[in-house]
Design a protein around this nucleic acid. Structure first.
Length: 404
DNA sequence: TCTGGGGTCCTGTAACCT
DNA sequence: TCTGAGGTTACAGGACCC
């Protein structure tokens, strides 16, 4: 349990990260699982681990690992399918707690957020004391632990919370940044994944310190202008990004992997319709319209393509998303090609209130939109799936059923 | 060992316009 | 009329994150 409490001079940014979030929420709900390996993830032949308790991680289990492999490593683990609605509820409560401390809360995902506490006054103490206060409150109210990084910049705070895990808090004051940063492996930097790490290792750059002492030009040549400049700045601890609350969404979508590969266009069409409806429902519930529709196709060999088209007028109508998605798919001429996954995404979102609805198609489109809004209301009353397009009725037992 | 689902951002290319 | 430069936008792909 890494813990270092002290004055947090020059530190106003907190990064709070729930420990093994989904798995911890499950253990909280089922206390008999406490202290045992628990895996949340897909159980099918194509499922992967979404979250795992530290007891499971000790066996080498980690997120994104195929569940089947995780179970070979840790046969005693309890595998749970996951309950996104419950996790979202816990997440909302935790974010509300953060906002009771400062309005400057920037959620990164369900289980982590940046907080800027520069303007909170001394009521709760300095940034480190605020961090400890939040850790205690999250545990009291939700029964789960979290880790906190405290620093002067977002990215150092993020690295600090990673180092504090699990159930800890780490402060990195400005004079300590280089000493903290430079021994870390390059892969620790935000934005360095397996590919970039390989490129850097080929250049003989192993640590963040190595990166810092190479000319920025060298990194720009190897990684491109943006990434090269960015990494060089980070290696010197420079990160001017502010904590920004309420960033609008840029896209939303849905995708599903089939339980077994599919080559029947009718099955693909049906899945595109289902995904378009799901995506449109999300647009309506969040008040956005999409200007661009894109589809994603992943083939049996895991190669992936995307195709997109910009609409004449922005929409949140499932039938319109589907018409476009289907046209994009049909244009590929993929009959008999084995497909593993399909996805539909709505991009270039505009607020529903700001965009004039298209008049030309008025009557018909209005009818569709009204029907889908009525279906939304029915779903809220009677549960998701209460109202579905006729082509989706009875389709839940087909051979092309998506993996769950 | 066989790779989920939700996203963001960057880059290269082509088309189009001036 | 032809050609090229340069800017903008749309599209496709890839890397990355949780």
């Amino acid at each position: 349990m890494a813990r270092e409490i002290g004055r947090a001079e020059g530190c106003t940014v907190l990064h709070v990260d729930m420990d093994a979030f989904f798995a911890s929420v499950e253990v909280c709900r089922r206390p008999e699982l406490a202290g045992t390996p628990v895996i949340v993830g897909g159980a099918g032949n194509r499922g992967v681990v979404t979250s795992a308790t530290y007891e499971a991680r000790r066996y080498g289990v980690h997120a994104a690992m195929p569940t089947a492999r995780a179970l070979r490593l840790c046969p005693t683990a309890t595998v749970l399918p996951g309950d996104m609605a419950l996790y979202a509820e816990v997440s909302r409560a935790v974010m509300a707690l953060f906002r009771s401390v400062t309005p400057l809360v920037e959620p990164l995902s369900m289980d982590e957020a940046f907080l800027d506490v520069a303007g909170t006054g001394r009521r709760l103490g300095d940034a480190a004391e605020i961090g400890e206060f939040l850790r205690a409150r999250v545990f009291d109210e939700q029964g789960i632990t979290c880790s906190v990084g405290v620093a002067g910049t977002k990215f150092v705070a993020k690295l600090a919370s990673t180092h504090a895990k699990p159930d800890g808090l780490l402060v990195v004051r400005p004079p300590e940044v280089m000493g903290f940063l430079h021994p870390l492996p390059v892969g620790a930097l935000w934005g360095v994944g397996p590919k970039t790490e390989e490129t850097l290792l080929r250049l003989g750059l192993r640590t963040v310190g190595d990166l810092a002492h190479v000319p920025a030009r060298t990194l720009q040549r190897a990684l491109g202008a943006a990434a090269g400049t960015h990494l060089h700045e980070l290696a010197w601890g420079r990160d001017p990004r502010r904590v920004v609350p309420d960033e609008p969404e840029r896209s939303t979508g849905a995708e599903e992997t089939f339980a077994t590969d599919v080559d029947d266009p009718r099955v693909v069409h049906r899945e595109l319709l289902r995904l378009a409806e799901r995506t449109a429902g999300r647009l309506r519930s969040t008040g956005w319209l999409a200007r661009t529709v894109s589809i994603k196709i992943r083939f049996a060999d895991f190669t992936t393509i995307t195709r997109s088209r910009t609409l004449g007028a922005p929409t949140d109508v499932g039938q319109e998303l589907y018409d476009t998605a289907r046209a994009l798919y049909d244009a590929l001429g993929l009959a008999r090609t084995r497909i593993r996954l399909v996805g539909v995404r709505a991009e270039r979102l505009v607020p529903a209130g700001s965009a004039p609805r298209q008049l030309e198609l008025g009557a018909r489109e209005h009818g569709r939109r009204e029907a889908e809004l009525a279906a939304d209301r029915a779903a809220r009353r009677f549960g998701a799936g209460a109202v579905r397009p006729a082509t989706l009725l009875g389709s839940s037992g087909g051979s092309g059923r998506p993996a769950r």
